[in-house]
Nucleic acid binder design. Sequence first.
DNA 1: CACGAGTGGCTAATCGCGTTAGTTTTGGGC
DNA 2: GCCCAAAACTAACGCGATTAGCCACTCGTG
Lengths: 191, 191
Amino acid sequence: MPRAGLDRTAVVEAGAALADEVGFAGLTMGRLAERVGVRTPSLYKHVAGQDDLNRGIAALALAEAAAAVGTATQGCAGRDALAAAAHAFRDFVLTHPGRYAATIGVEPTGPDDPVAVAGLGLLGSFTAVLRSYAVEGAEMDHALRALRSFLHGFATLQSANAFQWSADVDDSFEWLIALLDRGLRNASSPQ
Amino acid sequence: MPRAGLDRTAVVEAGAALADEVGFAGLTMGRLAERVGVRTPSLYKHVAGQDDLNRGIAALALAEAAAAVGTATQGCAGRDALAAAAHAFRDFVLTHPGRYAATIGVEPTGPDDPVAVAGLGLLGSFTAVLRSYAVEGAEMDHALRALRSFLHGFATLQSANAFQWSADVDDSFEWLIALLDRGLRNASSPQ
DNA sequence: CACGAGTGGCTAATCGCGTTAGTTTTGGGC
DNA sequence: GCCCAAAACTAACGCGATTAGCCACTCGTG
């Protein structure tokens, strides 16, 4: 039996790709094993189990999302940066719905958990965007959460096909970015 | 063996309550059967299977959420209505995380699917709120999607404990409402 | 070049969950 | 008091995750 030459990152990456194809719920150890050309129990030589696999996929997805947002906003500021970040994030979620879904419901075990580290990276990319606006101090935390909620909600709902009405979804996304921009530009003004 | 006297709604409601307790992923036919005092296969006399159960729970949750938002916004307008709706929705998701989770990933099978009907009800509650702002025509669809994305994203992330930083989550929610209000008040103005 | 150890793969088996088939029991209507 | 449809039960299957235990390939070392 020739060896497949697997290692942890190969298994995790194959799992992420498979999750994108068949959906996170359809990611099964058996399917993943078949995909990488191995019998199911052999996977356990590389990952500790399904939970560990999910954590690996989540960390990978967060790192990739952070990179996508970071490079998309290079050299932009203000509304341009916001639009670039939003589009980069949504594109990532829509092209990689499975691995993004893996990031939900994974609680980091500690501050040096790869999931936590990757999450901080994504947060950093968003922080850079918000710095272009007059957001400072404690408001940064609120704005970060708002931005993350917006993007997560929209991308998740669209990826779940929860938008069934008439209007074009891309138009709605642009409208949403404009609304965020309006709200952020006056962030410090008295409500 | 004395009869338990179950019917479909009793099973669905017990399933929703159980999902809130143990999480949507922990909702299992065996546990639900034990909860209602019956053996697992007996549940299949009332629901067609786990998927059907999920649809029932989702429809129930959407109807309850619509009712909560609707009554909370009675007699309010503008920012008051927005704040009331946002709080009612978030409270519902936080107190019923399991049944709300059931609403994600359920695609209505047709226009008269109870899930679709209940979803339209929730949409109607949000539409009433947005009518207080100068939102009209095609913008209503965009604003609806924006509001839904915001609320879904925030509630989901908080319920998944994805907010790990310093600032108070309730403060962030108020800040987010203020941001939405600012953005909506100028909805029709040129960006 | 042999070899021994460790690693990566395999088979077999267990457990839990969803689901189906077939059987028994209950309780309301005649 | 009897009958039958509904509702519950037991038994059994399939599938997915996981573990235990075994074997083969490969690589570094003598």
